[in-house]
Nucleic acid binder design. Structure first.
Lengths: 241, 241
DNA sequence: AAAATTAATGTATAATTTACATTTATTATC
DNA sequence: GATAATAAATGTAAATTATACATTAATTTT
């Protein structure tokens, strides 16, 4: 399928001879949000070595597979979810990062809605949700990947509407604020938060209320992707929060 | 050196068998700045196929080499420079991106000072500087890499002091403004620019003037890395410009 | 001495961000 | 059915930051 004799990189043709191989993997940092906290989907190895150790969910990238497709495959295999927010984090390419193979890993972080994933699948895979502030030790450099992903999320969420990816399609403003407080790791002022949130005019107020967390109930809203898209196409480079 | 039989990833042990290989390369998007314009160091292939075609400068990643080290090696081999600003851009991992090998490439962008590199080396390698607004067609997905790197530079330069990496250690404010105008692709107001630049208190005014571009001459400044570091350690998350 | 050229500077207005406390809608309880 | 309890919803004034804009200063060349 791939013609290795072809001489496109002729100058460097003696790389990777002698049957030694470079492996490429991808590891997914899968974030969720529930009751005020960011969660991470981890997977408990069931086979030796490192059986029982916690790890991010990953896979080798197939030879005929796009790197991004490999991450999407992993995500779908364990959660049943497709078409969710997923973005490259960083390459983990230290020569000695994996004692088994020479293996680089492309870290990719995903934001999913905890009301949408397939719980059966998750259970089957020996995966479980952990609070990001209370993680078990992770294999290899996965702890670093999580740290990097959290930092990136914090940074990106300022200018891109990522908070919405972690909530159900219909959400309340207090819920939204809570997501951003978890991402930014600080409390926000209700009035100022609402002011900013509404100022962009990308939320649609629904006629329903969510009464699960108060007697009064809070109105539900939807994020209007089209309006948002139109905004940024106009060259608007605003802070979401 | 790497024990491929070790069973760390036992579940996935049948990946990459049959002698098929995954190659990992790195391509460097090397930026410079001169007379008002961002420049890119390109390399003209000297061997078939694609001889004479322009390309970013890259290399396969050696089996015992960190991915970042590979990029540093490439940069040093062609420019003689070490310890310059270099950061990962993105992984280019489409299965069909390279017709020769199954090869993913880690794009890494570097910012260098055009007064510091080794001109002999550059010539020896058949490399040359191109204005980013006037590039020849590039092989494979290298054109996309450049586009992505420019976008990232534009985005990052807002919050990180990257402009300084493209100027000599001693520079004038008009030069600095010119760098930022090139990065942001828009003209900036001199007075407002100076106000912002000085407000962070990270520039040290020298007693010398640069007279190459005016009769009056412009004072030279240095960027004070220590002061900047102290600022961000205090949690200051300010816009550089 | 005058002309030419780029460097350097300040201020007023608009826009944005911040800090802060009360009222409202609803359910549960007495 | 009145009262208590609870979280949701709202506005304003002050401070900070961003923007728009034109003149003077230093030096060299003619």
């Amino acid at each position: 399928m791939y013609k290795e004799k072809e001489d496109l990189h002729a100058v460097q043709k003696d790389y990777y001879k002698d049957n030694r191989k470079m492996y490429v993997a991808t590891d997914c940092i899968i974030f969720g949000f529930d009751s005020g906290n960011l969660k991470l989907l981890l997977f408990q190895r069931r086979v030796a070595p490192l059986s029982g150790e916690w790890s991010l969910i990953g896979s080798f990238v197939n030879l005929d597979e796009d790197v991004s497709a490999a991450a999407e495959r992993v995500l779908e295999e364990t959660t049943g979810l497709k078409n969710v927010f997923m973005e490259e984090l960083k390459v983990y390419g230290a020569a000695n990062r994996d004692p088994g193979y020479r293996c680089i890993s492309v870290g990719q972080y995903a934001l999913i809605r905890l009301n949408e994933y397939d719980k059966e699948l998750v259970k089957e895979h020996g995966a479980a949700w952990y609070d990001v502030n209370d993680l078990p030790p992770l294999v290899l450099d996965h702890g670093q990947m999580v740290k990097d992903a959290l930092a990136k999320l914090k940074q990106k969420a300022r200018f891109q509407p990522l908070g919405f990816e972690l909530l159900p399609e219909k959400f309340t403003i207090p819920q939204l604020q809570s997501v951003y407080e978890a991402i930014f790791q600080k409390e926000l002022d209700t009035r100022n938060f609402r002011k900013k949130v509404f100022s962009h005019n990308v939320l649609v107020k629904l006629d329903e209320k969510d009464k699960t967390s108060s007697k009064r109930g809070a109105f539900l809203y939807k994020f209007d992707h089209k309006r948002y898209k139109r905004l940024i196409e106009k060259g608007n480079d605003f802070e979401v929060f």
